[in-house]
């Protein structure tokens, strides 16, 4: 028996049979009995120490007002409401549903939907401050690639496309989709492209999927065991051109 079970016992996570086993064991094993005493002492130390940080009163106010702003902008963002629809138009709803379905392919699962939102906010934030844009500034792929070494549990492919009009500006680490990911920054004239890379869950390659969020174009695909998301305010055609370059470079 390992001491982990003593912890699970103190935490009330064991079923009855296991609990009895632990109790029996503690009668015979002095080390585990001591560990048990230590755990209960630690628990009461926590209880008596009031280590809980309650939220400051003004924080609730601040959050309430930022939520109200957000709720308003969501409504005005969807000014194309259903209210104006005459009843007769309801007949066209199935058709409209089909159009919407095709307009946002690939985002049928709510997971991708969340991810797309996360990508766009991350992209926007990365551009707000120059210091957020890159952790390593270099147009040299041989500088950027080793920089990720030891910071990620995978090696992202890094290529510069200066000669094709998409110079590499640098890279940075991000935390997205519950994991650390590589972000590469490219430029196309006055537009920036964030290319996010992390190991794919499935090994099979998937074709490019395009979508639009808050005026930004997103493209994602899976290739050679990596998942790619490209986000930019660049037009769809040129972003697709960029995605082609990335895919062909592998």
């Amino acid at each position: 028996m390992t001491q982990e079970f003593i912890h699970a016992y103190v935490d009330g996570e064991l079923d009855l049979a296991r609990s009895l086993e632990v109790e029996q064991h503690m009668k015979e094993c002095r080390g585990c009995a001591t560990a048990y005493r230590n755990q209960t002492a630690l628990r009461s130390a926590f209880k008596n120490s009031s280590l809980y940080h309650s939220a400051p009163a003004k924080l609730e106010k601040r959050i309430r007002s930022s939520l109200r702003r957000e709720a308003k902008s969501e409504v005005s963002g969807r000014s194309f409401g259903w209210r104006w629809l005459p009843v007769g138009a309801l007949a066209f709803l199935p058709l409209m549903a089909l159009v919407v379905w095709q307009a946002v392919p690939g985002l049928r699962s709510s997971g991708d939907e969340l991810l797309a939102q996360e990508m766009v906010s991350n992209h926007v934030r990365s551009l707000q401050l120059e210091s957020h844009r890159t952790d390593v500034i270099s147009s040299d792929q041989h500088t950027v690639k080793p920089w990720f070494d030891g910071k990620l549990d995978f090696a992202p492919p890094v290529k510069d496309f200066s000669s094709q009009g998409f110079p590499l500006l640098g890279g940075r680490l991000e935390y997205l989709n519950n994991r650390a990911v590589a972000a590469l920054i490219y430029q196309r004239q006055k537009h920036y492209i964030n290319l996010y890379i992390w190991p794919a869950e499935q090994s099979n390659a998937t074709a490019e999927v395009a979508t639009k969020r808050q005026g930004y174009n997103l493209l994602h695909w899976t290739n050679s065991g990596m998942t790619y998301w490209a986000v930019s305010d660049l037009n769809g055609v040129e972003l697709h051109e960029f995605a082609r370059l990335v895919q062909e470079a592998q």
Binding site: T2, Q3, R30, G31, C32, T34, A35, R37, N38, A41, L42, S44, A45, F46, N48, S49, S50, L51
Partner: peptide
């Protein structure tokens, strides 16, 4: 390594004040 605790640690924990624990 599963070093088995020494008894005095329980005492120590009882003495630990909130500041130390934090």
């Amino acid at each position: 390594a599963e070093s088995h605790d020494l008894d005095p640690e329980a005492l120590l924990l009882q003495k630990a004040d909130a500041q130390m624990l934090r």
